[in-house]
């Protein structure tokens, strides 16, 4: 979409006005600073998704839109988790983070902050694996996505 003030609120406003759900939404400028790329995750029947795409296409600020779930694609989300890490828990948490290819990006005597990327379900699985009461804080970006192979969304 155009990297213009208000473009995001047009998209968000459309979803709330027409009663569609936003599961997650992520947006940032691309290599072309006049364009932003948004990945939006929504749920709905085929008819609803078709309407969502048609309605989004009508927004003047939306340049191009594809349904990534129509074909092969890569989906990736970033999560930062701050966990309480004391005594023998420290080793255990480090071990779990390693299994999930997470990186510990901040350490104090009492806590770790772990950076984790991957599909949404992988991040969910990590949170399910570590003990719930050790979690102090989580931040997730929501999924960003890109088509596999030759499947390219470009203006």
């Amino acid at each position: 979409m155009e990297n213009e003030a208000g473009a995001l609120s047009r998209v968000a406003g459309l979803f709330s006005a027409r009663g569609y759900n936003i599961e997650s939404l992520i947006v940032a400028p691309t290599e072309d600073p006049t364009l932003s790329r948004m990945t939006l995750v929504t749920v709905g029947s085929d008819d609803v998704v078709e309407q969502i795409i048609k309605q989004l296409n009508k927004l003047i600020d939306v340049v191009k839109i594809i349904d990534l779930s129509d074909g092969d694609h890569i989906e990736c989300e970033l999560m930062l988790v701050k966990v309480r890490a004391i005594g023998k828990d420290r080793k255990k948490i480090k071990g779990t983070a390693d299994i999930f290819c997470g990186r510990i990006v901040d350490v104090t005597g009492k806590s770790y902050t772990i950076e984790l990327t991957g599909t949404c379900s992988k991040l969910d699985a990590f949170l399910d694996t570590i003990e719930r009461n050790t979690i102090l804080e989580t931040v997730r970006t929501g999924a960003s996505g890109i088509g596999r192979g030759e499947r390219i969304l470009k203006v």
Binding site: D47, Q51, K54, Q55, K58
Partner: peptide
């Protein structure tokens, strides 16, 4: 002329 008017309420 508006694709979003098509199959909105009626298939």
């Amino acid at each position: 002329i508006d694709p979003s008017s098509i199959s909105k309420r009626v298939k």
